[in-house]
């Protein structure tokens, strides 16, 4: 059963140069307890899709379509309704732990206020819960950290605090927006372990937004690949990695450096630039960069069509035949 069901979501931003569509007609569902990976380049709309779900779009942004959380539409919901979901039943972890914690509040208080707000906890109960949650995300010397300010912690510890904060009320879903991008590689692995533990032991559904396919491979059950505000391919993680059906997905996979590659070889890249969202090419937005493009691709936009029970792609080309 889907805890989060996004239907035909379109997000656009009013700018001085006219409206920019960051997300176009995206439909996605997050099942209870699963980990859904969202991959794409900067500007592909992967973050904005879930910012819309959290009601955190910038003030010039508008969302259309439906975002059903446990059956209730969050689009157009008032702040009060959103606040019964945010931080309570759906948590969010942000990319930059250095700037995402309030600098003038102690860790314990920042964690505790979630419990106080959603569970009506007393200050001492909230503190106890905060301590338990810090231990759960493996923060060493957790007791002492409660009375520290964010700037006294390292980046990895701050990201653990962010995760603990998102988990305080045992939410049904958490959205992790590039949770490891700003961190050292060794710390990245620890953070991913914690997320895996959360998913497996707390049975929390996780949305993992990243541009790092390695992160996806390690954690996700299903993957959606986004390009220029649309989903171009979606499927189970094994299928996507073993048999990419969209040229963009295939390109992304080819770009990932491998340990068994010959030394001194050139790294593969996808030629060209991601398109300007205000001047999207006609037809398929990827066709100017696509090696499989035909004339049809520049005239007509391929719809996302199911190719197997768990797979769908938005492409006219048949990669196997080509």
């Amino acid at each position: 059963m889907a805890i989060l069901d996004i239907r035909n979501l379109t997000v656009s931003f009013a700018t001085p140069d006219g409206a920019v569509s960051a997300v176009n007609d995206v439909s996605l569902s997050l099942q209870k307890g699963e980990c859904l990976g969202i991959v794409g380049e900067s500007g592909s709309g992967k973050s904005q899709t879930f910012m819309a779900a959290m009601g955190l779009l910038a003030t010039n942004g508008t969302a259309r379509g439906e975002i059903l959380f446990d059956g209730k539409n969050l689009i157009g919901a008032d702040e009060g309704t959103l606040n019964t979901v945010r931080g309570n039943r759906m948590g969010m972890i942000f990319q930059d732990p250095m700037t995402s914690l309030t600098p003038h509040m102690k860790i314990g208080r920042q964690l505790g206020e979630v419990m106080i707000r959603h569970r009506g906890a007393s200050i001492s109960q909230a503190r106890e819960q905060a301590l338990a949650m810090l231990k759960r995300v493996q923060v060493p010397e957790a007791e002492r950290r409660l009375d520290m300010y964010p700037h006294e912690l390292s980046g990895g510890l701050r990201q653990r605090v962010m995760i603990a904060m998102a988990l305080m009320c045992s939410p049904e879903a958490i959205i992790a927006d590039e949770p490891t991008t700003a961190l050292d590689v060794t710390v990245q692995a620890q953070i991913l372990d914690i997320l895996r533990d959360v998913k497996e032991r707390l049975n929390t559904a996780v949305v993992l937004i990243t541009h790092d396919l390695g992160v996806i491979a390690g954690l996700a059950d299903r993957v959606a690949v986004m390009y220029a505000g649309r989903i171009v391919e979606v499927g189970d993680v094994r299928g996507i990695f073993a048999d990419p059906q969209h040229p963009y997905t295939k390109g992304l996979l080819a770009c990932t450096p491998r340990l068994d590659d010959a030394c001194g070889g050139l790294m593969t890249t996808i030629s060209g630039q991601p398109p300007n969202l205000q001047r999207l090419p006609a037809g398929c937005a990827f066709h100017p960069r696509c090696g499989y493009a035909s004339e049809r691709c520049s005239a007509e936009r391929p719809a996302l069509e199911q190719t197997a029970p768990t797979r769908a792609k938005a492409c006219f080309a048949n990669l196997k035949a080509a």
Partner: peptide, 17 residues
């Protein structure tokens, strides 16, 4: 505009808080 204000909103705190 700070990121931590966005975090605070994501925690479901009333805007006033």
């Amino acid at each position: 505009r700070q990121n931590y204000v966005r975090t605070a909103r994501a925690k479901g705190l009333p805007f006033r808080t």
